[in-house]
């Protein structure tokens, strides 16, 4: 098999590794999230229902992991897609990476801010 068709490291080794680590975290936490929201509480979702679940620190931890791992996985995935197109040159890829880190950290801060009443 030709090397260039199977190179999974185009985005860098750490990006590749963290994409897989966050993938495993997401499978576990997203399964919990979807079973609780789509199956156990279908038709009953409101802020009271959500708040009751967030009172459980374990589930708050699941939500924080979902937030952080989800953002990393989603934005790193978008980065890999976009680098296959216009952002393929080194300088554009660097600008894209920096921009996506800013977006990710802003969303992380926003999400943590919203969860803060149940964290503190």
């Amino acid at each position: 098999m030709k090397a260039e068709t199977i190179n999974t490291h185009r985005g860098g080794m750490w990006s590749w590794l963290f994409q897989r680590i966050t993938a495993v975290l997401l499978i576990v936490c997203l399964a919990i999230h979807l079973i609780l929201t789509h199956i156990a509480n279908i038709g009953q979702i409101d802020m009271e229902n959500i708040g009751a679940r967030l009172a459980n620190h374990g589930l708050t931890a699941v939500d924080i992991i979902l937030l952080a791992a989800g953002l990393y996985h989603a934005l790193n995935g978008l980065r890999m897609v976009l680098m296959d197109y216009w952002f393929s040159t080194r300088s554009r890829a660097l600008a894209l990476t920096a921009g996506l880190w800013v977006v990710g950290l802003v969303f992380l801060g926003y999400g943590i801010w919203a969860l803060w009443p149940w964290i503190g």
């Binding site: 953002l71 989603a74 934005l75 978008l78 897609v81 969303f107 801010w113």
Partner: peptide, 25 residues
Amino acid sequence: SGVLLAVYLLAHIIVISTGHFDWLD
């Protein structure tokens, strides 16, 4: 599916984190 889920995730975080409980209900 990855691009769709990324867009959905960002929209989900924006909406769910507003803190306006009446509006969200």
